[in-house]
Simulated scan of single mutants.
Amino acid sequence: MAYSPTACLVVTIVLQVLVLVAIALRLYVRVGVKGNIAADDYMAVLATASYTGLSILYIIAMANYGVADPELRISEEQASTGLLLVLIGEVLYLISTYLVKVSVAFTLFRIVTAKAHRYTIYTLLLIGAILTTIACFWAVFLCKPVNHFWDRFRGTAGSCKSIRTLMAVHLVQASWTLISDLTLGLVIPGLVLWDSLMERRTKILVWFLLGFGSLAAIATIMRIVYLPSMTITDSPADNPIIVFWSILEAAIGIICSAAATWRPLVSRLRRSSTGSCQPLGS
């Protein structure tokens, strides 16, 4: 895969704008149209806040500190700052990804009644919480002392764990993410709708809307493909493609899960365009 630092920087900025627009429309639908904001919306807002922090860090770090840009010439001090931002960004990515899954799960709890389905969701969330916590701790405490990760340029004494252990932790976490995307986005909604009394056309539409968030699985698969190439050196420019797919994955998850809530807004706009005088917020 060809990698262009400038293109990735532009994509990150565009994704950030789209994420903010998506969450704003979600909140407008829930508050302005339906008048009912719930736990899944709060989780989506927290995921957006975490992703926004990740996105801003990535933009600053890539433009000024050589993160994911091997062609940018930087000083040792800048490289040290860049590695610190990489560490913070990794934690924010993990948190954002998990919160998106929690938001989708809370949305499903509104329509899921079968105990087997609910227990499946609870199990996924519990496993995800454990794996996300482990991955965060592993990232933060990869080196001993912790600051050795970003202070290696200053000759500080310390050591870091093997790259293979870090890769294994990320592969396990990514596998959970992929399984969760498919289970929460496609499998459980499909099982719920299969036994419903809706018309087939309506079933397909609802299944499509609920499963829209699973599109993030594509980015997850791409990240898994590149994870075996993960490296750790003294440069903040390591693993640019993995960083890019991580950002893309988190953004797609937020945007698509938000899009699944826009149906009332689309319906109101469609009625307005056909001449209905009914107020949008009624």
Rank of each mutant, 00 (worst) to 15 (best):
I74N: 04
C256S: 13
A258F: 00
I56N: 06
L191R: 11
A259G: 15
V169D: 10
I163M: 12
S246R: 01
D151Q: 14
S180V: 01
I56A: 14
S196E: 09
W138V: 13
Q78I: 09
A129R: 06
Q278Y: 07
T107Y: 05
A22R: 03
F212M: 14
M43Y: 04
D41H: 07
T183V: 10
Y65D: 08
V187D: 07
K34C: 09
M222H: 08
L227E: 08
A38E: 11
L108K: 02
S214T: 00
C256D: 04
A129H: 04
V112H: 04
F141T: 11
F153A: 14
K161L: 13
L99K: 02
V192P: 04
A219F: 06
I163K: 11
S96W: 00
L171E: 08
A24N: 09
F137V: 15
P5L: 08
A114E: 13
R26K: 14
L215C: 13
L193Q: 07
E77R: 15
I88V: 15
P279K: 07
G82A: 10
I13L: 12
P145R: 07
K34W: 03
K101N: 02
D234T: 15
Y58N: 12
L84P: 02
S246K: 00
V102R: 01
A217F: 01
Y28I: 03
M222C: 14
S175N: 09
T156P: 02
Y226V: 15
T6Q: 12
C143Q: 06
L85H: 04
P228D: 09
L205Q: 10
P240C: 11
I121N: 02
S159R: 10
I134Y: 06
V112D: 05
L57V: 07
L269A: 13
I163N: 13
P264L: 05
D195W: 03
S159P: 08
L83Q: 06
R30P: 02
G89H: 04
R154C: 07
K203Y: 03
T12N: 12
L125T: 03
A2E: 15
C256I: 00
L72S: 09
I242K: 00
K144T: 15
A260N: 07
V192C: 09
H117V: 06
L193K: 02
T120H: 05
W150N: 04
L125P: 01
T274K: 11
I218R: 06
V10F: 05
S162Y: 01
S159D: 13
I37W: 08
L18P: 10
C160V: 03
C143D: 05
I179M: 12
R201C: 06
G190W: 03
V206N: 07
P240R: 05
